[in-house]
């Protein structure tokens, strides 16, 4: 855990021995309702972190805060040394580092699968079109969707759309990937193909943060588990320990309900 004086020092120079995502004392309110009430934890490069918890406990909000989709009220979030809670935040630079995949895929329905993957690098990063195309084709292959490049999102199944969404985020070459309940809207039979894609990514050493209800999957791939309830982290630990003997009563209750 870094103190605030260190925080300032790390701003410019992030080194791999420091956490790539550092969350410190984060508070977030929506009106009178406090969704996050002092959340603190670190994620090291290459780690796979799973956040679980009952609905409404602030898991998704936490992910959105990391990406600056939702501004935080208090505390600090640093991504590769860049402070997110900063009015002068360079959102473009932050979002190049952080990729996000949503529950509802949110593909752009007026563009083909391949165009969805190519759009942001070309229009936002102003990269060379031919180069991007080559990379996008590789990514489509990586998510096992070669052959579906010219399909429109409406013509793809939920699982296929979600994999395009993953490829679309990867095209920005992010350092961290955020997955917000990415399998929650899928049919049971297509959940697996998406999970396999995420596991491939994790095995390649991509830093991943997942909010998920897939406990089996979390136990398999996570390096670290976090359980949130009522806007705070109640319990954390490596998955083996976390699932085998949870210490907190609320964790026990939750796992008891869900497993």
């Amino acid at each position: 855990m870094s103190s605030s004086s260190e925080t300032a020092a790390t701003q410019a120079t992030w080194t791999p021995d420091r956490p790539i995502v550092s969350i410190h004392g984060v508070h977030k309110r929506f009106g009178d309702f406090e969704v996050l009430r002092g959340v603190t934890f670190d994620v090291m490069k290459g780690d796979v972190v799973c956040v679980i918890g009952p609905s409404g406990s602030g898991k998704s909000t936490l992910l959105r805060c990391i990406n600056a989709l939702v501004p935080i009220d208090e505390g600090s979030i640093q991504v590769a040394g860049q402070e997110v809670h900063d009015p002068k935040l360079d959102k473009l630079a932050l979002r190049k580092k952080v990729g996000m995949v949503f529950q509802q895929y949110n593909l752009f329905p007026h563009k083909t699968a391949l165009q969805n993957v190519m759009m942001a690098p070309i229009q936002v990063l102003k990269q060379d079109k031919a180069e991007v195309r080559e990379r996008a084709l590789k990514l489509m292959k990586k998510v096992r969707l070669n052959g579906k490049e010219d399909a429109y999102p409406g013509e793809l199944s939920g699982g296929q759309q979600q994999r395009v969404a993953i490829a679309r985020s990867l095209a920005m070459n992010p350092d961290v990937m955020l997955f917000d309940e990415v399998t929650a809207a899928l049919d049971p039979e297509t959940v697996k193909e998406v999970l396999v894609t995420i596991r491939d990514l994790a095995e390649e050493g991509m830093t991943c943060m997942l909010v998920t209800h897939e406990m089996g999957f979390a136990r398999e791939i996570a390096d670290m588990m976090y359980f949130t309830d009522n806007g705070v982290i109640v319990e954390s630990g490596p998955p083996k320990e976390f699932f085998a003997n949870p210490r907190d009563a609320r964790t026990k209750e939750f796992l008891g309900q869900i497993l």
Binding site: N67, L69, K91, L92, R95, K96, V98, G99, M100, F102, Q104, Y105, N106, L107, F108, M119, A120, Q123, V124, L125, A165, R168, S169, M172
Partner: peptide, 18 residues
């Protein structure tokens, strides 16, 4: 247009205008 489209574009670093 569903708000997810705005969020997805924002998380891909598109500006509001873009």
């Amino acid at each position: 247009i569903p708000s997810g489209q705005w969020e997805a574009a924002e998380s891909l670093a598109f500006s509001r205008r873009q």
